Simulated assay, not measured.
Amino acid sequence: MALKTYKFRLYPTRKQAEKLQWTLARCCELYNAALQERREMYTYTGKGTTYNQQAMQLPEIKGIREEYKDIHSQVLQDVLRKVENAFKGFFKRVKAGKKPGYPRFQGCNRYDSFCYPQAGFSLENGLLVLSKVGHVKIKQHRKVLGNMKTCTLKREGNCWYVCLVCEVQSVPRTPYTDECVGIDLGVSKLATLSTGDVIENPQHYRRAEKQLAKAGQALSRKKRGSKRCKKAVERMARLHRKVRNQRNDYLHQWSRRLVNTYETIVFEEIAPANLSKRAKPKQDEETGHYLPNGASAKSGLNKSILDTGWSTFIARCEYKAENAGTVQVVKVDPRMTSQVCSGCGTVVKKDLSERWHSCACGYELDRDHNAAINIRNRWLGRSHQEAQAS
């Protein structure tokens, strides 16, 4: 059995939308109160508290704050579980020697979801039935399979979505071929396959950049806290949400095609977060003045790298392959894949601006295509002579 999440758009009435927003605000209050209690208890006693101890206080809280009676009990319990998980993650990072990131208080604009973890929800005749909320209209664009386990209500701008986690029986899917394909991720092109095929980069963010710039300028002219300011913020959020949805849709389509076609998909083991770091400042040792460091060009490259969504693309392929059961997604060491000739194995040093691979052996092809072939051969463990013979 596997877990699968279905995400659908909700169309609540004005009264229902107000109820959902009110519930979200109360959950945010409870989260911050639970976090404050843990901080104060550790400050004054030197000991922390647990989820069970805080959950036992909920009946007493409802006696003091009667509005909490209008929220399903398991929703309130799940809020306390979020606090528990936040601290577990904090202590786990401390033990691992990573940056701890102490749990922080959540503002009303940051806390944007609440969950029915076991009960209090159902689907009936094209409507989502929520305890203490009512029957909400849902855009159910696909059939929900399996047994529903949890129901999460999520706010994105002025829109509401529901995420239904279902336990489904995984059905193996056989790809069209039993081939192995190497994939070189790029900026000008999203990906180049070892077969020579190219996945174009639609550059969704770049195409919307002018609109976003105008919306940002309009926002900067508004008085903070005014109704016009809120409308400008909503417009910015709407534009960013559109870009994100376009990117997700495009990556979903291509990851599905790859998983349906190939038995083994090979990527480079890259870290986009490291590749998109800003340029380090250069300082003259004698005068102390800062020297040109190419920060402007690096900033533009970083923006393009993040616009492609490499990590998301790989993650989409991985979970689809896992669901298929007969497909595997693997990663190889990326070192020298662009410099080594896939024909003879000679190292041909190339500048990043050189987009064509040309070797003394007479082997010529696109730089990214050459890298994709090297990525595939590296996974197969082939030498360059064996790759040519095949």
Rank of each mutant, 00 (worst) to 15 (best):
V133S: 11
A297W: 02
G300D: 02
D112C: 08
C115F: 09
A315V: 06
A315I: 02
L251G: 05
Y102K: 06
P281Q: 12
A237M: 00
C344M: 13
R173V: 08
Q283K: 15
A315C: 08
K282Y: 11
S304R: 13
S226I: 04
A324W: 05
A119K: 15
E67G: 07
Y176A: 15
E286G: 01
F90V: 03
T13P: 02
L127S: 05
F87L: 05
K303F: 08
T23W: 02
N147P: 00
Q339G: 01
L130E: 11
S383D: 12
V79R: 09
R367T: 04
K349Q: 11
N260F: 01
A232I: 01
R206G: 13
G101M: 08
D70P: 00
H384R: 06
K320W: 07
A297Y: 06
G63H: 07
H135L: 00
W254C: 02
K298M: 06
S311G: 14
S342W: 06
R247V: 10
R228S: 01
L212T: 14
N52T: 08
K143V: 13
G182M: 09
R38G: 08
L219N: 11
A232Q: 04
F121K: 03
S122L: 04
D78S: 14
Y102A: 02
Q36Y: 12
T264V: 15
V243W: 09
Y68S: 09
N374A: 14
N374T: 14
K280Q: 12
I270P: 09
K189E: 14
R378H: 07
R235W: 03
R173L: 01
L251C: 02
E209N: 11
T264F: 12
R355I: 02
T308Y: 14
L301P: 10
S194Q: 01
P175M: 14
A17H: 02
L130D: 07
T312I: 15
V187F: 08
K88C: 06
C159F: 12
V83T: 05
F8A: 00
C341R: 02
L185E: 02
N377R: 07
K82M: 07
A371P: 09
I71E: 06
A389P: 00
K214M: 10
V83M: 10
S131Q: 14
T50R: 04
C359W: 02
A191C: 04
L145N: 11
C344V: 14
P117R: 08
A208H: 10
Y68I: 04
V162Q: 03
N293I: 09
V340Q: 08
K154I: 07
D307V: 04
P59Y: 12
I375K: 07
G225T: 05
N274I: 04
K210T: 13
E66V: 05
K154L: 01
E209Q: 15
L20Q: 05
K242R: 15
H204M: 09
P281R: 12
K227E: 08
A297V: 09
A273M: 00
F105Y: 15
T43K: 11
T43E: 09
K132Q: 13
M336R: 07
K95A: 13
V340P: 00
V136R: 01
R26G: 10
V347L: 07
P281C: 13
G101K: 05
K242Y: 15
W356C: 13
F267T: 00
N201V: 02
V75K: 05
K69Y: 15
N370K: 05
N370H: 04
S113G: 01
M236N: 11
E37N: 11
S342K: 03
C317G: 14
S170G: 03
V327W: 14
